[in-house]
Design a protein around this nucleic acid. Structure first.
Length: 835
RNA sequence: GCCGGAGUGGCGGAACUGGUAGACGCACCAGACUCAAAAUCUGGCGGUGGUCAACCCACUGUGCGGGUUCGAAUCCCGCCUCCGGCACCA
């Protein structure tokens, strides 16, 4: 089917109408906002995209959600900031540029051009005067400034660390960029390696990030839970053990200090530095080294796969139990991870399943120190570890009480003896921000042989990314081969020095972009503080769930840092968060690589932008995934055409001054249609507030259907009928306008109203008129619906019971029986319990 | 394993704090219009049955099994399936 704009008569001329209104809005700068004190502010933010040039209806959905909401808030009288920008600097863009054989600068320019046009054709109400582009030196210079603030506060450091290495992308990745052991961008298995990198000390904020989750009342529960898990706080005890015959100690963390008397061996992670120090020069050196190398060579996937068996090797060394003084063997095993806790554990096989399996495999003693109620554990015969609570046994003077109490006492005792301390461990790792890639902001530091690491002075920012660098992927920083870039004078001593060749990760730029929109052209500071204080926090943030533990965590972190440095007054950047669902087609997520995309341009050409907008919001709840359906698109279009005809074919009955002619009482039909109009305002307002666009649209469709029926019956000469119809049509067009703004503005103009609906006030319902006059009361007998009775609103329920008993249907069931109980729910139902 | 979420007609989905299950839309069926088709308009549409022409009536029905209640898609207990997140986390 083809409905190509003006070429086919079977629709309205959406092509020229949409262009006309887009021009109208742009020419009058209707979406431009400035600070103003006469209206409450509302900062609506969509997560900005990276310019891929592949905008499809899946992406479009969240921009439509945002646009409908922003337009609604504007009509409600808010001063709405609704900006858009480009996450153009970083790996995604660079990879795309390499793939298509162009320079990232060109690629960005090209894609931004295309996407901006697509947004405009969709009629999205962005304030383009605030557009930001992270690859603009203006922007990334301030990102470098941000780096320096962290560096100067001790929150950015360079150091060796166990990092994720993507061999395909030739760079390290943050933990948050590894999904299921694979690179989130190219799906390659990630390797673990130790490399010098730049880190942001997000772990310093672990507690604050966790605690402040409580402030995020309007965030989806699951995102809060995901962050909680990601931070992974656990309370326990840290202590050190001496190593027999060596001037070394090992530190461990445990959540079960109550089980310390059941400690029968120690285990190190294969990456643990002690492994070589313990075995150096001994007969164990070779087997241990072999084991460690083999374990470390395994990818994250292999190492942690469910069916991977616990495996290890003895180091020949022994540690001294801090409480009993016993010698316990030290092993190395694959089931201990270097990046959690201390990379070493105390093994209590009786009360930890992995330790248990390990002990059985290598024939080590299992000593129960907690006895479950009603059972007697025997280390020789038990078949699995007991991890529950019980009575403390075999634990010197701590025996004979509950293990919970013993846990506290043992901790007290060890703290008093200076053997260790209560501690908290987090799963969260420091944020690795350096990348061995070209397309990013150079990390603003200089290496001087004399002075060491020297930060670039703020006044020398931005450190420009040279456009003429070779940026092929080799596994080390492309900038290191650009001599002109690398050679620099040390800002401190003036001697020749070299620049840092690594660039910053994409997520650093997006961790603060929401602070830039309020003053996008500020050149004295990253942002104008008054503007930020006026607009922030973001009142409503919308984006994909995939950013739950990455971007959203980083942004919260950066905001907290800026708060602590005195740059902003708030601790959380996003007051409300909404995660929109994805669009699937043929059972798979829409994506160009799968070849199942529908582009907004196709829809615009065939049905018009309003149809695409309406469909995107009508398919289902906005926070749920949904399946693309060509049929439903046609359905959406049909509805718009019906609205078009309802309005244009009944212009004779339209009266712009309808309010003067509205009947104070009116006929049954008139009252009914007025009630529907006002009910629809209430329903749609309510739904918009909670972003339930699908049900809002259903309500508008009902109003439209009722109006269409009314039109059949009405007298086009009768002033009251005309007024009632006009009120309904007026309501319909206003309520629909945030969703399908072009057709609505066109109808609005044809109805002789002005200016654009963009500047119209959101309607307020007359609650009195919305109230039902007649209420249907359901009559149940023993909980089964047997009849229903229409009564005037406010009828006493006792009277309803009387009425019900007179009904034939009811009598049939009640006859000859006794009414044991009568349930009366006002305005709703009665239930006669008979026996 | 732990943590979130979901399971309702042929399909997408409605159903406020327990109160007529299936709004709205798609698909489908019938009718009107048409030479015909498309489009449009009108009506029907969970299942089974009652002599169903019709109105009508009965039973049954929200993943499964129990329970609470006058009354359960909704609350409780126990399961199953699917989706998402985390995971040898010490």
């Amino acid at each position: 089917m083809e409905l190509g704009g003006d070429s086919v008569p079977d629709s309205y001329d959406f092509t020229s109408i949409e262009r006309k209104w887009q021009d109208y809005w742009r020419e009058r700068s209707l979406f431009h906002v400035e600070r103003r004190e006469d209206r409450p502010k509302f900062y609506y933010l969509d997560m900005y995209p990276y310019p891929s040039g592949e905008l499809h209806m899946g992406h479009v959905r969240n921009y439509i959600i945002g646009d409908a909401f922003a337009r609604y808030k504007t009509m409600q009288g808010f001063n709405v900031l609704h900006p858009m920008g480009w996450d153009s600097l970083g790996l995604p863009t660079e990879n795309a540029a390499i793939k298509f054989g162009v320079h990232p600068v060109q690629w960005t320019e090209q894609c931004v051009g295309i996407m901006k046009q697509q947004f405009d054709r969709l009629g999205i109400s962005y304030d383009w005067s605030r557009e930001i582009d992270t690859s603009d030196p203006e922007y990334y210079g301030w990102t470098q400034w941000l780096f320096l603030q962290l560096y100067n506060s001790g929150l950015a450091y360079r150091g060796p660390g166990l990092v994720n290495w993507c061999p395909e992308c030739g760079t390290v990745l943050a933990n948050e960029q590894v999904v299921g052991g694979r690179c989130e961008r190219c799906d390659t298995l990630v390797e673990r390696t130790t490399r010098e990198q730049w880190f942001f000390k997000i772990t310093d904020y672990a507690e604050a990030l966790l605690e402040d989750l409580e402030l995020l009342e309007h965030w989806p529960e699951r995102v809060v839970r995901m962050q909680e898990h990601w931070i992974g706080r656990s309370e326990g005890f840290s202590f050190t053990l001496e190593i027999e015959g060596l001037d070394e100690e090992m530190e461990v963390f445990t959540t079960r200090i109550d089980t310390i008397y059941g400690l029968t061996f120690m285990v190190l992670a294969p990456e643990h530095p002690l492994t070589s120090r313990l075995t150096g020069g001994t007969e164990f050196e070779e087997p241990v080294q072999q084991f460690c190398q083999r374990a470390m060579a395994e990818s994250v996937m292999e190492r942690t796969a469910e069916d991977t068996e616990v495996e290890g090797v003895f180091t020949g060394a022994h540690a001294i139990h801090p409480l009993t003084g016993e010698r316990v063997p030290i092993w190395v095993a694959n089931y201990v991870m270097m990046d959690y806790g201390t990379g070493a554990i105390m093994a209590v096989p009786a009360h930890d399943q992995r330790d248990f399996e390990f002990a059985r495999k290598y024939d080590m003693p299992v000593v129960p120190v907690i006895q479950p109620e009603g059972a007697e554990l025997d280390g020789e015969t038990m078949t699995e570890a007991y991890i529950g609570d019980g009575e403390q046994v075999n634990s010197a003077r701590f025996s004979g009480q509950s293990n919970r109490a013993a846990m506290e006492q043992i901790a007290d005792h060890m703290e008093a003896e200076g053997l260790g301390h209560r501690d908290v461990s987090y799963r969260l790792r420091d944020w690795c921000i350096s990348r061995q890639r070209y397309w990013g902001a150079p990390i603003p530091v200089i290496y001087c042989d004399e002075c060491g690491i020297v930060p670039v002075p703020e006044e020398e920012l931005p450190v420009m990314l040279p456009e003429d660098a070779e940026f092929t992927v080799t596994g080390d920083s492309p900038l290191s081969r650009h001599e002109e870039f690398m050679q620099v004078q040390c800002p401190r001593c003036g001697r020749p020095a070299r620049r840092e060749a690594d660039t910053m990760d994409t997520f650093v730029y997006s961790a603060w972009y929401y602070l830039r929109y309020p003053s996008p052209h500020e050149d004295e500071a990253p942002f104008n503080r008054d503007d930020v204080e006026y607009w922030l926090p973001v009142d409503q943030y919308v984006g994909g769930i995939e950013h739950a533990t990455g971007h959203l965590m980083y942004s919260r972190f950066i905001t907290k840092v800026l708060h602590d440095l005195g740059w902003v007054s708030f601790r959380e950047p996003f007051a409300r968060l909404f995660t929109q669902g994805m669009v699937y087609k043929d059972g798979a997520k829409m994506s160009k690589s799968r070849g199942n995309v529908v582009t907004p341009d196709e829809i615009n050409d065939e049905y018009g932008a309003d149809t695409g907008r309406l469909f995107s919001l009508f398919v289902g709840p906005a926070d749920q995934d949904t399946e693309w359906s060509d049929e439903s698109v046609i359905g959406a279009h049909r509805f718009l055409w019906r609205v078009w005809r309802l309005a244009t074919e009944n212009m004779g009955a339209w009266n712009a001054d309808f309010r003067a002619d509205l009947p104070s009482d009116g006929s049954e039909e008139q009252r009914q249609i007025r009630r529907k109009s006002h009910q629809t305002i209430l329903k749609v307002t309510d739904d918009f507030e909670e972003m339930r666009f699908n049900t809002a649209i259903a309500a508008i469709m009902e109003l439209s259907n009722d109006l269409a029926s009314f039109v059949q019956e009405m007298d086009a000469e009768d002033a009251a009928d005309r007024a009632v119809f006009s009120e309904g049509l007026w309501t319909l067009v206003v309520l629909l306008s945030p969703i399908t703004p072009h057709i609505c503005d066109e109808l609005w103009a044809r109805m002789g109203l002005e200016p654009s609906l963009v500047e119209e006030q959101w309607p307020e319902a007359d609650e009195g008129l919305a109230e039902e006059e007649t209420i249907t009361i359901v009559v149940q007998i023993n909980g089964k619906v047997r009849d229903n009775i229409d009564v005037p609103a406010g009828t006493d329920m006792d009277d309803v019971v009387e009425l019900a008993l007179e009904r034939e249907k009811v009598a049939k069931y009640v006859e000859g029986k006794e009414i044991a109980k009568t349930i009366k729910v006002p305005e709703k139902l009665i239930n006669l319990v008979v026996s």
